[in-house]
Design a protein around this nucleic acid. Sequence first.
DNA 1: GCCAACGTTGGC
DNA 2: GCCAACGTTGGC
Length: 145
Amino acid sequence: MKSEPDAFSIDDLKKVKVEPWDGIRNYQARNFMRDQMQIGDQVLFYHSNCDEVGIVGLMKVSSKPYPDPTAFDKKSKYFDPKSDPVNPRWMLVDVRFVKKLKRTVTLSELKQYSQLDGMQLLKKGNRLSIMPVEKSHWDFIFSIV
DNA sequence: GCCAACGTTGGC
DNA sequence: GCCAACGTTGGC
């Protein structure tokens, strides 16, 4: 799961411990939260759009999917008048801090490993902020960190 | 700040 | 249903 550290970083998550992953307004990303994630699933935290782009931490899914409250909040920048509380358009999960990695595994480093060929994060033009990680890729990342 | 890639919107 | 226009993402 990606976040811009200026908006919400791994250090912010460490402080608050649990965070609703709100503001996702992309259907594919929503579908992963709504249809795939289970409580306890482990998640990589990725910093995007910053000086040191890459994987910075580990967290866990800590809630079932539920409607994103910011979609109903007129004062929120994520307000979506098309999301109806009776039939909510946007769903999210809570995530819980597990740990910060000893070092950032940068995007440029990730691109150098043939073991990670085909990883969705590394595909050209990838703009998804939430995506699945294959077990082999996951295991490799933790073998080098 | 630039720009490629992608998603969404809306006219037809 | 097509597609141009537009907005956003995100690396560099």
